[in-house]
Amino acid sequence: MAAAYETIRVEHDGPISWIVLDRPEAANALSPRLLDEFSAALEALKGEGGPVIGIRGEGRGFCAGMDLGAYGSGDSGPADPMADRSRLHRNVERWLAIWDHPKPVIAAVHGFCLAAAAQMCVFADITVVADDVRIGEPTVPIGGGYIAPAWVSLVGHKRAKEFAFVPGNWIDGPTAVEWGWANHCVPAADLLAAVRGLADRIALTPPDVLRLKKLSINRAAEAGGFRQALSGIAEIDALLHLAPAVIAVRERMAEQGLKAVIQQFRVPPTTPLVAPKE
């Protein structure tokens, strides 16, 4: 009997089994329930479904990142550091379950892909983006050292720093491919068909062979430091959440509202780099 989910769907389409983030009214923001259901579906698909897993979002975009409303958006004071660290570390473990999954995982990304969603996609084996995609950092700088370090193995430390240092920085689909964050950029209307076609070709390789190929390549990436780079990011982010400058921004969010504070930090992206107009 298929599991009943409230915030995701699981759809089987020949060689590919989709995990669909299904909170379009909330921009597919990652609530605690969605995260738990995502992990449960990923675990269930180890023993059922097609030989390839796909992840996509319902509605106008892939995912807007963490659901700040579910975790408090500034009106509840600083988080308990140990509880905060445990929550952040648990989410890294959720993404590592993608990395360690016995099946190839393809992220199909359209529209917006922000903050923790941009971190999640790093752990997919293959990422295909639509030409309408905007892959971005959180606009309000109330965290740090959590998302961009996962990018380093894909884009290098200089590009990861450029991405992280500017509030709300973002890249488009062609830039994501150029940087090495994504494999392909395709027209938005062709995204799902392109991923399905790729899954068809991957499925020609027997599942046991795919599993060992993935394991071998993962070990090579880990020898280069991929997993080690993630070892301290939860602690750094939890520590920063207690910094006076971050607490001050959270207080502004409580007083002025999230949208007003976002506007104060909204600036153009740094790619392509252009001189400011006088």
Score class of each variant (00 low, 15 high):
132 D>F: 03
250 R>Q: 15
83 A>V: 09
265 F>Y: 14
126 I>E: 10
34 L>V: 01
239 L>D: 13
114 L>P: 00
173 G>D: 07
239 L>E: 13
210 L>C: 15
103 K>H: 10
32 P>N: 07
109 V>E: 03
201 R>N: 14
54 G>W: 02
99 W>P: 03
197 G>Y: 03
266 R>Q: 12
120 M>W: 06
209 V>N: 13
232 G>S: 08
174 P>L: 08
240 L>Y: 08
106 I>P: 00
198 L>S: 09
210 L>K: 14
200 D>H: 12
240 L>E: 08
149 P>Q: 06
258 L>M: 07
60 R>N: 00
197 G>Q: 11
20 V>D: 00
244 P>K: 12
210 L>D: 12
73 S>I: 05
124 A>V: 03
149 P>F: 04
90 R>W: 07
224 G>I: 02
36 D>I: 01
223 A>C: 05
193 A>G: 10
41 A>K: 00
158 K>D: 14
120 M>F: 11
269 P>V: 03
262 I>E: 13
104 P>A: 09
160 A>F: 06
151 W>D: 03
242 L>Q: 15
3 A>R: 14
244 P>Q: 13
177 V>Y: 01
94 R>N: 09
236 I>H: 12
154 L>R: 15
66 M>E: 05
92 V>K: 10
137 E>T: 01
74 G>A: 06
20 V>Q: 02
157 H>I: 11
40 A>S: 00
202 I>M: 15
217 I>F: 13
55 I>M: 08
257 G>N: 08
181 W>M: 13
237 D>T: 11
49 G>W: 01
44 A>F: 02
159 R>T: 11
84 D>H: 11
185 C>L: 10
137 E>R: 13
192 L>T: 12
28 N>A: 08
37 E>K: 02
41 A>R: 02
36 D>N: 09
149 P>Y: 06
144 G>H: 00
175 T>V: 00
75 D>W: 07
147 I>C: 01
102 P>R: 14
56 R>H: 03
262 I>P: 02
93 E>I: 01
185 C>A: 14
138 P>K: 06
257 G>E: 07
122 V>K: 01
115 A>Y: 08
92 V>F: 12
258 L>P: 01
31 S>F: 09
57 G>E: 00
254 A>F: 06
251 E>N: 12
50 G>F: 05
9 R>Y: 14
48 E>G: 05
125 D>G: 03
140 V>C: 04
64 A>V: 08
245 A>R: 15
268 P>H: 06
224 G>F: 05
107 A>I: 00
155 V>S: 04
187 P>E: 05
101 H>Q: 07
1 M>V: 12
143 G>C: 01
187 P>V: 00
78 P>E: 15
179 W>H: 14
257 G>H: 09
252 R>Q: 12
190 D>T: 04
258 L>R: 09
269 P>S: 15
93 E>Q: 09
199 A>G: 07
